[in-house]
Simulated assay, not measured.
Amino acid sequence: MPLSPFNIYNQFVAEASQAAQVRQLKRTIKENANFNYAANESIREMVSTSEYTQSKT
């Protein structure tokens, strides 16, 4: 029964739901300038640590 109306409907709903989640994620990334992208720390945090020293010449 893979082509039963219920299976087709359930497949359609699942794909529509997944597409909506992807659109929402893309919208969140676009609207939020602070989106993390799974980075451990920002570049600003990395260069402002005490381990980073800028040589003065």
Rank of each mutant, 00 (worst) to 15 (best):
L25F: 08
Y37A: 02
A38L: 13
N7Y: 10
K30G: 05
E15D: 07
N40M: 13
S55D: 15
Q18V: 02
S55K: 12
E15I: 03
A38P: 01
L25P: 00
R44Y: 15
Y37P: 00
A38T: 12
Q24C: 04
E51M: 09
L25V: 08
V13T: 05
V13L: 02
S4G: 10
Q18M: 08
E31I: 00
M1Y: 15
F6Y: 14
Q18C: 06
M1D: 14
R23Q: 12
F6D: 14
S42D: 05
F35C: 05
A20V: 06
M1N: 15
E51C: 07
S17G: 09
A33Q: 14
Y37I: 01
F6E: 14
A16Y: 05
F35Y: 11
N10W: 03
R44D: 13
Y52D: 03
F6T: 11
A16K: 01
V22A: 04
R23S: 13
L3W: 12
A19H: 09
P2W: 04
A14R: 01
P5I: 00
L3H: 13
F6N: 15
V47Y: 08
F35N: 04
A16I: 02
S48N: 15
E41P: 00
R23D: 06
S55A: 14
S17T: 07
S42K: 03
E15Q: 03
K56G: 05
T57D: 12
V13I: 09
L3D: 14
